[in-house]
């Protein structure tokens, strides 16, 4: 794959999106989408700032650069829909309406955290919001998302289950097993693959055959598929909206969407790591030019007062960190509680 192809971003989805001129991209949607986009970015940057102080003491995987897809879907789902996600799950948790204070407190290991300090950054949960957990094991949450969809189908609920994965999960056997079953049972589930080209330091080129498309693999298993630019938030939203509508209204069965995107910082931790040489600085800069946040602002300049939203987000973040730092740690006896449900 030459450099040009590598950076080619595919703007057209693989299926025929019906053009909807009356698309309800209104000011409210723009505002809410921007809010989530900026919120994820700012939260992650604040974590990066705080991380060197060694008060955050758990493996932490930041979503900086990959905010586009979570922001795009945040205005398309409700509390009855389910999300499951991965080690890099902060963005999905926030996009599903997960409580910021509880997330930051969890990362700090505090009793007020969403998992009482037992899970940390890689195990976020907000059942009330339909956020059914993240897993530190690549591919682990895929079948859970399919099981949630099975449950919805059996209970005849008109809700969807969204499974967030990366390109690495495509190499896990459980991905094929899960997608096969989802297709077999025509389940209301969306596999959302954020392809950021790397699994830790290993590029796609050492993991998957050159030129083979991830979404076409999924298509061969029988899923409906789409492919879109994950850094173009409104395009991603349009693709997602159409697919979610199809699943909810015409029982279209499972969908697999591949979104191209890029992680800016190191796999795990707060630093930049391009100097290690596993990826090219130019590649990083090329993707940075396609920053989902800046692109969004450029394309929606006249509509909103970004400064006002930014200020609100800053105050939310300030409050979350202030609280989390001063909140108490759990009692030591908590370590021995809640092994079994009563």
């Amino acid at each position: 794959m030459d450099e040009k192809d590598k950076f080619k971003l595919i703007h057209k989805s693989m299926f025929n999106l019906e053009e909807n001129q009356n698309s309800e991209i209104n000011e409210d949607i723009i505002k809410r989408t921007y809010y989530m986009l900026k919120k994820i970015r700012s939260v992650e940057e604040r974590i990066a700032e705080e991380y060197p102080y060694n008060e955050i003491r758990c493996p932490t995987h930041l979503s900086i650069g990959q905010e586009g897809v979570p922001a795009a879907i945040s205005t398309l789902v409700n509390d009855h829909d389910y999300f499951v996600s991965t080690h890099r799950g902060h963005a999905h948790y926030l996009a599903k309406g997960g409580d910021l204070n509880k997330m930051i407190a969890e990362i700090y290991g505090k009793t007020t955290g969403c998992a009482g300090g037992k899970g940390g950054s890689m195990h976020l949960i907000d059942k009330q919001k339909g956020f059914m957990g993240t897993s530190a094991i690549v591919g682990n949450s895929i079948p859970l998302g399919v099981g949630l969809a099975l449950s919805n189908k059996l209970k005849k609920k008109n809700s969807i289950s969204c499974i967030f994965i990366g390109d690495g999960a495509i190499e896990e056997g459980v991905f094929y097993e899960s997608l096969n079953f989802a297709v077999l049972k025509n389940l209301p589930v969306v596999f959302i693959c954020e392809n950021n080209l790397y699994s830790v330091y290993s590029p796609l080129s050492v993991r998957q055959p050159e030129g083979r498309s991830i979404n076409l693999l999924a298509k061969a298993i029988g899923a409906n598929v789409a492919h879109a630019d994950g850094n173009n938030v409104l395009e991603s939203r349009k693709v997602l909206k159409e697919i979610i509508t199809k699943i909810k209204t015409c029982e279209s069965g499972p969908w697999f969407i591949e979104f191209d995107t890029y992680r800016w910082r190191e796999h795990c931790g707060y630093q930049f790591d391009n100097h290690l040489g596993y990826r090219d600085e130019n590649e990083y800069l090329a993707w940075k030019k396609r920053d989902p946040l800046e692109l969004f602002k450029k394309n929606n300049q006249v509509l909103i007062d970004y400064g006002k939203i930014d200020k609100f987000i800053e105050s939310e973040i300030e409050e979350a960190f202030r609280k989390s730092k001063t909140d108490p740690f759990p009692e030591k006896s908590e370590a021995y509680q809640k092994l079994y449900a009563e």
């Binding site: 059914m132 682990n140 399919v146 099981g147 969809a149 056997g173 899960s178 079953f181």
Partner: peptide, 13 residues
């Protein structure tokens, strides 16, 4: 493996 995960997903809901 996946069918065990499916069972878990169904069970948590």
């Amino acid at each position: 493996n996946a069918m065990t995960g499916v069972a878990i997903g169904a069970s948590i809901s």
